[in-house]
Design a protein around this nucleic acid. Structure first.
Length: 364
DNA sequence: AAGGATATCAACCGCCTCACT
DNA sequence: GAGTGAGGCGGTTGATATCCT
């Protein structure tokens, strides 16, 4: 045990910084910068070691720090980046402007880690395999079915932030051409979408959050709105109402039912293109979706007005990226016309949360 | 209300890398 | 090439705040 060399030469103060010390450090750095941290304490009139000054400035006094608690979007990003980078906080924090590595590390250790641990106990196996992924991409075969492509864990939902990850993981393709993904790259903080087996109605799905998120969201639709993964599916208002006037919210399992119309299944793409229109400001807007199952409840929602990056699979099973709304609209129109000329499910937009792996959700 | 448990987070420690001599 | 010091990083600690019984 020993102190850093710079601290041995002088009598240095330890522990929490006083407001006076902060002021001295701010004044000095503002006026003179910090070319050499070891000389800062002496020049600034502080009885601290250079390392302590540096740490205080970087983690607390820097003017460009964001402060405040992490947003759900930031949390999701941290989880995702941690899945790729591990505990390399300095690398992770480069993607989080205004945050410090110490802050992210603390947040991870005090909050996310425990929650993910809990979630792992609930969802122990999120490892998935895309069968013949490589063959499908490199040797497109019209006979390949969507079912073949997505015949894995039906409770896994590809999210907007996750989809690029899959494409980045191409080197995980094994000698059989299968793409293997493990828990490491699975953002298991995100909700699972599953077929509603209770009502046996294929047009409804349960939106199940891992327990730790159920706790955070407190079953509150306005909070849910802030969640990045749902934001990408429903950027605007979510209101869930029963016809009897009560909010439809299953408090026991926090399952929120969201209508299938919000999923981009092949047969729904033409419908989507009809629903999305440009307003006078040139912004894409959608008309409210009203459930056809009005016997029990009405779901009013708004489809995304600004689309995240989409991944489009064409009739030859090639996947390509749609980077802007114009391309997406063109694609939707293509889909609309091809769908009217043939009744096959020729095109699917793999857009984030909209994409559902359960083969049962795909129209035959 | 009290006190124990748990969560949070600022700060420190030790190690590593790199530049300089 | 070896020694040294500074900066940077990740792990850990400990004081304080908050929660829970």
């Amino acid at each position: 045990m020993g102190h850093h060399t710079c601290c041995n030469k002088q009598k240095v103060k330890r522990g929490l910084w006083s407001p006076e010390e902060d002021e001295k450090l701010i004044n000095y750095i503002t006026n003179y910068g910090h070319a050499c941290w070891s000389s800062v304490p002496k020049l600034a009139g502080l009885q601290r070691c250079g390392k302590s000054c540096r740490l205080r400035w970087i983690n607390y006094l820097r003017p460009d720090l964001k402060r405040g608690s992490f947003s759900p979007q930031e949390a999701a990003l941290i989880i995702e980046l941690h899945g790729i980078l591990g505990n390399r906080w300095a690398q992770i924090v480069k993607h989080l402007p205004g945050r410090t590595d110490n802050e992210v590390k603390n947040f991870w250790n005090s909050s996310i880690k425990k929650k993910l641990h809990l979630s792992h106990r609930i969802l122990p196996d999120l490892s998935i395999t895309f069968p013949n992924y490589n063959n499908l991409i490199t040797n497109p075969n019209p006979n390949h079915s969507f079912d073949n492509f997505y015949s894995f864990n039906p409770n896994v939902l590809i999210t907007n932030s996750f989809t690029p990850l899959i494409l980045d993981q191409m080197n995980n393709i094994n000698h059989n051409g299968d793409l293997n993904l493990t828990n490491q790259v699975m953002p298991n903080s995100l909700p699972n979408l599953s077929f509603d087996s209770i009502s046996n109605d294929p047009t409804w799905f349960n939106f199940n959050y891992p327990n730790h998120l159920q706790h955070d969201l407190d079953y509150n639709p306005s909070l849910i709105k802030q969640d990045n993964s749902i934001n990408s599916m429903l950027t605007s208002n979510i209101s869930l109402n029963c016809t009897n006037g009560e909010n439809f919210m299953d408090s026991t399992n926090a399952a929120i039912k969201i209508h299938q119309d919000l999923m981009m299944t092949p047969s729904l793409l033409p419908k989507l293109s009809e629903m999305i229109k440009e307003n006078e400001d040139g912004i894409l807007e959608s008309t409210p979706v009203v459930s056809q199952h009005t016997d029990s409840m009405v779901v009013n929602s708004t489809l995304p007005c600004t689309f995240p990056t989409c991944y489009i699979m064409n009739p030859h099973n090639n996947v390509h990226r749609v980077v802007n709304e114009i391309e997406l609209m063109e694609t939707l129109h293509m889909s609309s016309s091809s769908s009217s000329s043939s009744n096959s499910s020729s095109l699917s937009a793999l857009s984030c949360s909209q994409f559902m792996m359960n083969p049962r959700t795909w129209d035959s």
